[in-house]
């Protein structure tokens, strides 16, 4: 039982990590909490299903297409809503972010309705619902195995991009000091756009995986996922990409174990409790740099 919960928690945690990375990367480069990220995640799921249903595309190409569209969406959000406010007071950008989030949530409600929609079952490979392997009492389904492999691959790819490529170096430079980075000839807006594209496509992938895992999606699913992914990002140390990955996994496992052994009703509140505890005890998070006193 315990081992099974652990594996289920890992599934959920890897997905949270995928969302949290998007929050933390954007926070790293422009110091803005991108509240609309949860909506990009929701759009990922809906776009994927719409592409499958209307174009008859198989699952994997549809997934790639949806991720691409969401990357475009993330870049557009930044370009239309956030970019004009780069020099405005912090509060203006934060309020805009929340406005974008509500706006997108309602667009989704108009397009796809306010009721939950199931994932197109026929598009999901049969192997996903079968047991992939069993370890003693633990049974892991094909979909879970796919989630493990896919998210791990994404994380490795992301780490490589950030640490080994030119644009990744530029991202890290921007996170340290935007003015100095601009003086060194880095095209700041292009790097920010790239960050949004990267984060949004990972968020979209997470949305698709969640929709497949639970076989349901709704226009409001971004809010709860957003709160939890935030909690994960804060747990890992906001601004730190490896921190967000670790935070997501820890939170997912903690949530599943908490739901199994403590209280299943307060499942959604657990992420919040973890976040408060982290902020109280170690605001810099597990892997983050220390945060300033300045209010």
């Amino acid at each position: 039982m315990f081992e099974q919960q652990l594996f289920n928690g890992l599934t959920l945690g890897l997905i949270y990590a995928l969302i949290a990375v998007g929050y933390t990367m954007v926070y790293g480069v422009i110091e803005l909490i991108n509240f609309a990220h949860g909506e990009v995640y929701m759009f990922g799921a809906f776009l994927c299903v719409t592409i499958i249903n209307s174009l008859g595309v198989p699952l994997f190409p549809a997934m790639v297409l949806a991720m691409g569209l969401c990357a475009l969406m993330g870049v557009s959000i930044d370009h239309i809503a956030y970019k004009p406010l780069r020099k405005a007071p912090r509060l203006a950008a934060l309020i805009t972010a929340i406005g974008v989030s509500i706006f997108l949530q309602n667009i989704a409600m108009i397009i796809w309705g306010s009721r939950p929609v199931p994932f197109t079952r026929s598009a999901v490979p049969a192997a996903f619902s079968e047991q992939a392997f069993a370890l003693g009492s633990v049974s892991v389904s094909g979909l879970q195995l796919f989630i493990y492999l896919f998210t791990t691959a994404m994380m490795i790819g992301l780490t490589l991009i950030i640490n080994k490529t030119k644009v990744g170096t530029a991202m890290r430079a921007l996170a340290q000091n935007a003015t100095a980075a601009a003086l060194m000839g880095i095209n700041v807006n292009r790097v920010i756009a790239f960050t949004f594209a990267l984060g949004s496509s990972l968020g979209a992938a997470a949305g698709i995986l969640v929709a497949m895992y639970y076989n349901t999606m709704s226009a409001t699913m971004g809010y709860n996922a957003g709160v939890k992914a935030f909690a994960a990002a804060v747990l890992g140390g906001i601004g730190s990409v490896p921190g967000a990955m670790l935070g997501g996994v820890v939170l997912g496992v903690a949530e599943t174990l908490g739901a199994g052994y403590v209280s299943s009703q307060y499942r959604d509140g657990l992420g919040y409790a973890v976040m408060i505890a982290v902020i109280l005890l170690r605001p810099s998070g597990l892997l983050g740099k220390s945060v300033g006193q300045k209010a």
Partner: peptide
């Protein structure tokens, strides 16, 4: 209280989930 010593961003994050926590309590 948890965010008193931190930047305003942390306050926004903490308040973001607060309504949902209250609703969760009222429902359960």
């Amino acid at each position: 209280a948890p965010t008193l010593r931190l930047s305003g961003d942390y306050f926004a994050i903490v308040t973001f989930g607060f309504t949902e926590l209250v609703v969760l309590f009222l429902t359960n």
